[in-house]
Design a protein around this nucleic acid. Structure first.
Lengths: 200, 200
DNA sequence: GTTGCCCGTGGCACTGGGTGTCACTAACGT
DNA sequence: ACGTTAGTGACACCCAGTGCCACGGGCAAC
């Protein structure tokens, strides 16, 4: 094989993206655990060793460039309007980070279905979410003057992530709603302390 | 080795508990990933194969009898007072399930420190928590008349679990507070929609 | 008591994820 | 032309987890 020096400037990123799509398709068709790293590598035309140089774990092939999403979330929170409630800022940031173009929605569905349904990926997701939580907790800490590891910042971070993942699940299961609407609905419940629950 | 037919009626459960403690100690001393299944088996005086008959995965050796805790949570929720708010029932159930005797607190600390700090165990925990969430979501659904996979039941389940784990983290980090107090504090914030956050 | 069954156990081989190392080669600057 | 750098493939290795088989002790039925 060897580097073909495509006409493109960054062959590395290109290879990575290709392998990612190949892996995602295999996973979707046959299930995450049923596909071996060897098979992905062969289908993508690279060696097993090279696969693991592009992705630290098999699970990482599903997550795309998640780090840049976290970084974007961080920037959005940093630029948030201090006048609005903290939860509103967080909700808006989550909505913006997950504002995909219509043509990208199918791939997003594919990815998220996998992540939320496959046990091995559910497990892996916890580690990724920890990064998100750190960013959100820091923002809450900045806004309230507390330390990032105090109860409130931590709690707001984990429960707003809970809101986000729940919104994703409903979005996937329903199929007719818009992700942004589901996110807003979940955050509205959270910010109001689940008002409909008090009657019971 | 072979079955020694101890003086105890249930040698199996006894072995399991012994292996669990041996594993927990090794993990605490050297880190979860640095301890191999072979080493645990040898230290516990059993074969590697037998270790994996008692525990499906290495991580399971840390979790004790978690299924019975979930079952207990389920019973507590089933017997909850319909007069009080749903979140109050959930909070009370969480508090009761985590009401350990003073002498058991050190082991609990050991376990939870591991689970919350070791990446491999954080990942594994997601799968365990899913069982908890199902139980809580079903209770919320019963109380509100919604389906268990609707937004509200799911969201309440995941965010009350977020409250519980956050309380655990604060409890571990602080060292002076009581777990029950931390749980109550977290649930109070959640149920009130983070009132202190609105000012900012 | 001998026979047959059940079950916990150990040994062994095998799959599959992930890593360390080395050698090859193409692109690039000087 | 030269050395450097970076992506790659091949190979050996570690370790978690599994399937399979064979052993051995308790325990009933006869």
């Amino acid at each position: 094989m060897g580097p073909v020096t495509d006409l493109l400037p960054d062959a590395r990123a290109d290879t990575r993206a290709r392998v990612e799509q190949v892996a995602l398709d295999l996973f979707t068709r046959r299930g995450f655990e049923q596909v071996t790293a060897d098979e992905i590598a062969e289908a993508a035309g690279i060696s097993r060793r090279t696969f693991f140089r592009h992705f630290a774990t098999k699970a990482d092939a599903v997550w795309g460039d998640f780090a840049s999403h976290v970084a974007r979330l961080d920037r959005l929170l940093g630029a948030a309007d201090d006048g609005q409630p903290v939860l509103a800022s967080i909700c808006a940031a989550y909505v913006q980070v997950n504002d995909y173009a219509a043509e990208d929605l199918p791939v997003l569905r594919q990815r998220m279905t996998m992540i939320l349904r496959e046990p091995a990926l559910q497990a892996h997701s916890q580690v990724r979410y920890a990064d998100v939580d750190r960013v959100v907790a820091r923002h809450v800490a900045d806004r309230t003057g507390e330390r990032p590891d105090a109860l409130l910042p931590r709690l707001v971070a984990t429960s707003s992530r809970a809101a986000a993942t729940t919104a994703f699940e409903v979005w996937l299961a329903d199929g007719t709603t818009s992700l942004a609407d589901d996110l807003h609905a979940a955050f509205a419940q959270l910010a109001a302390g689940f008002p409909t629950l008090r009657a019971h």
